[in-house]
Design a protein around this nucleic acid. Structure first.
Lengths: 257, 257
DNA sequence: GGTATTTTTTGATATGGATCAAGGCCGCGT
DNA sequence: ACGCGGCCTTGATCCATATCAAAAAATACC
């Protein structure tokens, strides 16, 4: 079950952190890099934000946003990873994205949540009620512009994913995913190539990967094996992949002719 | 080629129109319903907006936003329809969405456009340079919040489409599309069911449909034929579909068990 | 540390949708 | 009216990926 901490526990770098672009800051719990909006705000504004939120800790597997439920909260993740997904009644699942430290979610368009969100590991986050978020907007209009930028970026990622799901082959999907994950881990900038032999940590199961890429776990496994056979990658263990030939991988991903 | 009109040609209902939610207003050229933000603005604010834009007319087939090009403009469509798409070098194409009167596009997340946009028919639109758009934001912060709402809504649609592309069968995709198009045409509200025997006008070719749904034109055609055989729909002509049994169609679309 | 359980990989087979190939329909120009 | 060319539909076949099945590896549990 979720454990609610008191607002007084809030501390600056962890509490308010609403951007999608990397600006270094360290999580006070784990030291992990975070992405922050803090830089744009004054001490007073940060304090205002902190007063509006609750801090929550979630156990792995906790579904804390449920598709179709009334959209009551807005979240800012401080620590851990979250999968966002939509499901069909017969159990088919499409993961629409992953959220990590510094990411926000729950700013729904309508009355109800359009997706579900589940903690993949131990997650710490800040929760804002919709009312308090509106109050924050009144006080900090800069937040709104920042969120617009974040939403635009999400939209770009969504369009890339639509191309992947609608038109790419299994191998192309895997190659695309590996490169996009490198960007996510800040191993290389968006649009750039990671260095050869870069090590990719994947905190995902094959099932997650399959549900994200619109494939089955068997096809994911086979495609990874094939890339390994072809000398594109190495797989020292389930949760680590080494990009041996990122350039070729990129050509596969983009279906370069 | 694009024809640029002078700013003085601007008139209120056509000129500024940046919402995604339906609020009736008529296009001064064709009388078609439009979606408007105008209601939220004063005369002075509207005049300010109008001074910042250029009015442009496009011939069918004109690609006026090119993926990868520098993102220089922001557009508000007044008349006609636009397809948004991404392509792979070998010609595979994924349509990520359609834009019609009242829709906006081009508010890119990065330096370059993440997608291409092409006029499907005769299109009239307003064009803002990025600089003038920023000026508009300074003057009209309300626009920013409105656009955040629009972007959120786009994100919801994108997530639905990812579920469709990643996990639905051909028949389910077609059924989902027909119902979503009914919402788009304001035949029924989002989440609702259109009345039986509702007539759907489709200004799309089968190729567009296929590229939007991640299928081939043959599969689109076969699926439509099957729905017709099963008494779900009627197809009086290529660009019109009658929803005979919307309820069952919805059950197919959502894979209700 | 060893055994049970889950996850991943690999193999064999099946199948939904792609591809290849006609044929039909419709609008357009003459 | 006629013929042409561009969509669209339908049929036959193929293939990439799903499904079914089992072994291997990783992880959890006692």
């Amino acid at each position: 079950m979720a454990i609610l901490h008191e607002l007084s526990e809030f501390r600056r770098p962890v509490a308010i952190n609403l951007a999608n672009r990397p600006t270094p800051a360290n999580c006070e719990d784990c030291g992990a890099r975070q992405n922050g909006l803090c830089e744009a705000l004054t001490e007073d504004e940060l304090a205002f934000l902190a007063r509006s939120a609750q801090r929550i800790t979630l156990a792995p597997g906790t579904v804390f946003v449920e598709e179709g439920e009334k959209a009551a909260y807005f979240y800012n993740i401080n620590h851990g990873n979250v999968r966002l997904f939509k499901s069909l009644p017969d159990g088919r699942r499409q993961i629409t994205g992953f959220s990590g430290p510094g990411h926000f979610l729950g700013l729904a368009a309508g009355e109800n949540n359009a997706f579900s969100a589940e903690a993949m590991d131990g997650v710490k986050l800040c929760r804002f009620s919709r009312a308090s978020l509106m109050a924050v907007f009144e006080e900090l209009p800069v937040l709104e512009r920042k969120l617009l930028g974040v939403a635009m970026h999400e939209l770009v990622l969504a369009q890339q994913q639509m191309l992947l799901l609608g038109r790419k082959t299994a191998i192309e999907r895997i190659a695309s995913f590996l490169l996009s994950w490198a960007v996510r881990l800040e191993i290389c900038p968006a649009g750039g190539l990671p260095a050869a032999n870069s090590v990719l940590k994947l905190p995902l199961s094959r099932t997650d990967l399959a549900d994200y890429l619109g494939l089955t776990i068997e096809t994911v496994s086979r495609s990874l094996s094939q890339l390994k056979r072809d000398g594109m990658i190495d797989i020292p263990n389930i949760h680590e992949i080494i990009l041996l030939r990122p350039r070729t991988l990129s050509e596969i991903a983009e279906a370069a002719v």
